[in-house]
């Protein structure tokens, strides 16, 4: 039973990392958040699912630790070094309000999942609430940030949230789907990374507003 308590602590920490993400503007700290999230997910997997078959458990834990905590942050860090984009401080909304809105989303999801989901036997409501909040906060941050690298980072936090959500269902998802999530994240980051490089080559900086040439009602 001790493990369950610890695992829940990690999940709450995971939720807090989203608040940190919403309130900072330096991209390097966003990448650090990704590493922390990867490690937290690894711990959650390891502590929360140690009754799963050995092969599944090994795969899940190794996947989360290697890909989410090491490979992806390292890859993004390299991009960051090449592009010299350190800050994303021109978000549409000041950081303070970002923090407030994210907190409200987190609280709302937490309450909603406590209220609606706690009656369902096979879903853990803490998992589910935080996962839903992560997905919503990430989607919201994507819409307000101005740098392309930030968008990629928020895309990955969204994938992390979805991963947490799939853990919240007590039933196992088929391993193939896990494999799919891994493939998805890995290749998406790879491709997005390549695009960031190409965009940098083509345009002066990595502002999203550069990518608005294609439209129907111009002039």
């Amino acid at each position: 039973m001790e493990n369950i308590g610890m695992e829940h602590g990690f999940i709450i920490l995971f939720g807090l990392t989203m608040l940190y993400l919403a309130s900072t503007s330096r991209i390097i700290s966003h990448i650090r958040v990704l590493t922390v999230q990867g490690i937290l997910l690894f711990l959650i997997c390891f502590l929360g699912h140690n009754d799963a078959p050995l092969l599944d458990l090994t795969f899940l834990t190794v996947e989360t630790l290697a890909v989410k905590a090491i490979v992806i942050p390292w890859f993004l860090y390299r991009i960051l070094k090449k592009t010299h984009e350190n800050r994303d401080d021109e978000a549409n909304i000041p950081h303070f309000y970002c923090l407030v809105v994210s907190s409200v989303i987190l609280l709302g999801c937490f309450l909603a999942s406590n209220y609606y989901i706690s009656s369902m036997k096979n879903i853990s409501h803490i998992y589910f609430g935080i996962a839903a909040a992560t997905v919503i906060i990430s989607l919201w941050l994507i819409t307000i940030k101005h740098k392309i690298v930030s968008n990629v980072i928020e895309f990955i936090t969204m994938e992390n949230g979805i991963f947490l959500m799939s853990l919240s269902v007590a039933k196992e998802m088929p391993i193939l789907v896990n494999l799919g999530v891994l493939l998805d994240v890995f290749i998406a980051v790879y491709i997005l990374g390549l695009f960031v490089k190409e965009i940098k080559k083509e345009f002066k900086d990595l502002e999203v507003s550069n990518l608005s040439g294609l439209k129907d009602y111009s002039e």
Binding site: V181, F195, I199
Partner: peptide, 22 residues
């Protein structure tokens, strides 16, 4: 420039869409 923009939007939007499908 245009094709890079198109490809970026395509990958990004479809990835988010497909993530929501998950």
């Amino acid at each position: 420039k245009n094709s890079i923009e198109a490809a970026w939007k395509y990958v990004f939007m479809c990835s988010i869409g497909i993530a929501l499908a998950f």
